[in-house]
């Protein structure tokens, strides 16, 4: 750790402050995991209750857009991982650039997601925007409800992530975040971003690839 790090009130040294910050982030991600855990529990129970209809409904989703989005997110995670590495090496401009790139990929993800929703509206499959009569059966309706809730909850997290990374990149670029002294900030934002990606990596097979 560099000498430029500023200590906040209850901490007596930099290592303690760094570890506390990291631990706090891990605990927070634990709570996020339980939040999505509830959604996954509902998905799995619904599938167990109606296996055949669940699979049939799943096959109507746009599996290629989902796959593309998975690729986009994994790439963005790679960019964030690089950004953390460069931040540790005090290469501020490079780190900021990579964070912006990752946030950009996040926007691409959200754009593709929006496009996918539009397609589904046209197909009469998206609840809220289509009449219940359009569904082939009640369980398809149920599945699409779940799909909409799960993906929009994830999209909200993505949006927060994009804002977080953009803001951080801006602060780094302006010199507001001394590196590597405050690399914890980059690490923690990175952790959050990876977490949101991982959630998608599980959501994608659970919803799109049910066979």
């Amino acid at each position: 750790m560099s000498e430029r790090i500023e200590l906040h009130e209850p901490f007596s040294d930099a290592a303690q402050q760094h570890e506390a910050g990291m631990l706090g982030m891990y605990v927070f991600l634990g709570t996020e995991m339980m939040l999505f855990g509830g959604v996954f529990a509902v998905i799995f129970v619904t599938r167990a209750l109606h296996p055949a209809e669940f699979v049939a409904a799943s096959q109507k989703l746009h599996v290629f857009i989902g796959a593309l989005n998975t690729g986009v997110l994994l790439t963005s995670s790679f960019a964030v991982a690089l950004a953390v590495a460069f931040a540790r090496a005090a290469r501020a401009r490079l780190a900021a650039g990579l964070l912006v790139a990752a946030a950009g990929l996040g926007l691409v993800f959200l754009g593709l997601k929006a496009f996918e929703y539009t397609l589904e509206i046209h197909e009469g499959l998206l609840p809220l925007f289509s009449r219940p009569a359009n569904f082939s059966g009640p369980v398809e309706h149920l599945f699409m409800n779940l799909y909409l809730v799960a993906t929009s909850l994830h999209a909200i997290h993505m949006t927060i992530g994009v804002v977080l990374l953009t803001g951080l990149a801006w602060r780094i670029a302006r010199g507001g975040v001394p590196l590597p002294g405050r690399v914890a900030l980059v690490e923690n934002s990175g952790l959050y971003w990876h977490f949101v990606d991982v959630i998608w990596v599980f959501l994608y097979p659970a919803l799109y690839l049910a066979r």
Binding site: L49, H50, A52, E53, A56, S136, G137, P138, V139
Partner: peptide
């Protein structure tokens, strides 16, 4: 009420719901 959930093997999926 939910005829598509458990379909007897060898029959077509044609039963409508009486929900």
């Amino acid at each position: 009420l939910l005829p598509q959930s458990q379909i007897a093997a060898g029959y077509p999926h044609i039963m409508p719901t009486f929900q």
